[in-house]
Amino acid sequence: MISHTEYRAVVEFLHREALLADEARYAEWLALWTDDGVYWVPATTDPAADPDKHLSHIYDNRGRLETRIKLLLTGHRYSQEPASRMRRLVSNIEAAPAENGELVAESNFALAELAIQAKREMHWWVGRTTHRLRRVGGELKMCRKKVVLVNAAEPLPNLSFLI
């Protein structure tokens, strides 16, 4: 169990992260990460997925995360130029203490993306996210984010925004 105050802080963090991703506020989103962050989007819903054996959609360490953001900031990442219009709902949030004073939060999300770069299609993205959060200088940061899409193993359209 965690305290109500702590739970509140987790919820606010998840809402904040969702807002920054929705609004393509890339630098602010990157600032939510610790220096040892790992951002993982498996290409399967199999819980036994292993990023050292199986191909993932995303398996970024800090360096690659920064490259991902730099590309988006060039203005020439055409698959996100202009940025998709997005709003996501984050819900069913469960938070628990983890080792080393960290917190682990699980949540569901539903994201509507208007991919306006070509056909102006609406894409639905739905999945379950696991965040690992750590207090750094009094503020919560993510050191791990894993996103398991319900259709992770199906043909997906461009996923170059922040999920």
Binding site: Y59, L71, I163
Partner: peptide, 25 residues
Amino acid sequence: LLRMAEAGMGPASFLMPEDLLVASR
């Protein structure tokens, strides 16, 4: 090889989203 595959190809990679966006245009 896994990390190179994720960087180069697929919907969240650093190359193919642009290729497929141009193809759809």
